[in-house]
């Protein structure tokens, strides 16, 4: 097992759930950016492929006190004991400690789906079929050359748009820079979000907005007690929303706000 580096970049994301409206633009932006296959039936969520998923949650109260909220869920890019990486028998998925990105190499994946079983966040999808691009329909014409389309039998997941990191670096090299400025590299979902609920940047850089937000009293992560150290943080001022982040025994949850949620 490689040592975790303290230095270098640690790219991460903060999603403000108070802002998130559940519109799904992040999902569409992600799918368009990363050449996700869309099949005629996407309603079977066990078989459909999404890198960014939305979960709708309810405060469970009766009409008219019902309230809904959403959790956008990309890959958490777990920084510690990355569950998928530790089980992959083919080294098809790996964490890079210079960036914190957990990558997935499709040509290397053998499709055993061990990683899917290991992932506590259901962030991984399996290609039960080849990408759906029927001949003569023209759908292949919008495919981006920056992300390789997937074949059946491999697992895929959110990559933090690492091709955008490479894109940004390539651009920076024209100016003889190796270091990237804040916002030079952001994911497609963060860029697309029409309410700017998603902030992306280097968690190791105290100047970056993302590292400031991650220290907010309202910040939390999913299943934090597993110790996987996700690099995706959430913000919410509402306790009932925050409660969804983990499984709490009665009395275990500590509200950070006055209990109005």
């Amino acid at each position: 097992m490689e040592e975790e580096h303290g230095h270098g970049n640690k790219y991460g994301m903060v999603i403000d759930l108070d802002k998130c409206t559940g519109c799904g633009t992040c999902m569409v932006a992600c799918a368009a950016e990363n050449n996700l296959s869309v099949r005629p039936d996407e309603s079977d969520k066990q078989h459909s492929i999404t890198w960014m998923s939305l979960y709708k949650i309810s405060n469970g109260k009766k009409f008219p006190d019902t309230e809904y909220s959403y959790f956008p869920r990309p890959c958490m890019h777990c920084n510690h004991h990355t569950p998928c990486v530790s089980v992959c028998p083919a080294t098809a998925t790996k964490i890079d400690f210079n960036t914190g990105i957990v990558s997935q190499i499709y040509a290397r994946c053998i499709g055993c789906r061990y990683c899917m079983a290991a992932c506590p966040y259901h962030a991984r999808s399996f290609n039960w079929w080849d990408g759906y691009f029927p001949k003569g329909k023209g759908l292949e014409r919008y495919l981006s050359p920056e992300v390789s389309p997937r074949m059946r039998g491999v697992v895929e997941k959110c990559s933090f748009c690492h091709h955008r990191l490479m894109r940004a670096k390539t651009k920076a090299y024209t100016e003889n820079r190796r270091e990237l400025e804040e916002n030079e590299y952001i994911t497609a979902c963060a860029e697309a979000c029409p309410v700017q609920a998603i902030t992306f940047g280097d968690l190791n850089n105290p100047e970056h907005k993302v590292s400031k937000l991650a220290k907010s009293p309202y910040a939390f992560r999913l299943l934090e007690r597993l110790g996987t150290e996700p690099k995706v943080y959430y913000l919410s001022t509402k306790d009932w929303v925050r409660k969804f982040a983990d499984n709490y025994l009665p009395g275990e949850f500590k509200p950070v706000t006055s209990p109005k949620g």
């Binding site: 799904g24 999902m27 569409v28 799918a31 368009a32 996700l36 869309v38 039936d41 996407e42 309603s43 079977d44 969520k45 459909s48 492929i49 999404t50 939305l54 709708k56």
Partner: peptide, 14 residues
């Protein structure tokens, strides 16, 4: 078609 991915399975199923 991308929008179909964003629909929940209690909005559209099959």
């Amino acid at each position: 078609p991308f929008l179909n991915k964003t629909l929940f399975d209690n909005e559209l199923r099959g």
